[in-house]
Nucleic acid binder design. Structure first.
Length: 119
DNA sequence: ATTCTGACTTGGG
DNA sequence: CCCCAAGCCAGAA
């Protein structure tokens, strides 16, 4: 049995980040209620990532297709869907949102004052 | 090791 | 409306 001194030292990460930041992101995304949307920056703040809005998008990008998470409820600060690469997903996202009663204007944007999630 | 690239946001001009 | 710099950080090259 190895002595205590040989044990792996605790990984010193940022305060309050357990396994990885993505878990926190996923936890926040999972709390977005049906019929509402949140912005990347909003999720980042709620997840304790500060200005890591980009990381939120990155985390969602790495999300498996079978994930049971309302990933479609995350949009950008202008109220529009920010997908480009990997075709088809942006249309799917809009479809999923419209199915929840969220409406888009002619510019393809959501009124955040109406559909934005107030945490 | 270093550099580049993103499902982004914010603040400034 | 546009453009730019900084902040954030995981992967790929």
């Amino acid at each position: 049995m190895p002595r205590v001194s040989s044990l792996k030292p605790p990984p010193t990460r940022s305060p309050g980040t357990p396994d990885g930041r993505w878990q926190r992101v996923y936890a926040v995304v999972g709390r977005i209620p049906r019929g509402k949307v949140a912005t990347y920056g909003q999720v980042a703040r709620l997840a304790g990532l500060g200005r890591g809005a980009r990381q939120v998008g990155y985390a969602l990008h790495a999300l498996p297709d079978n994930a049971s998470l309302p990933w479609h409820r995350v949009i950008n600060r202008l109220g529009e869907i920010s997908l480009r690469r990997s075709g088809g997903h942006d249309e799917l996202q809009r479809l999923l949102l419209e199915r929840e009663g969220i409406r888009f204007d002619q510019k393809g944007r959501v009124d955040l004052s109406e559909f934005g999630w107030q945490a």
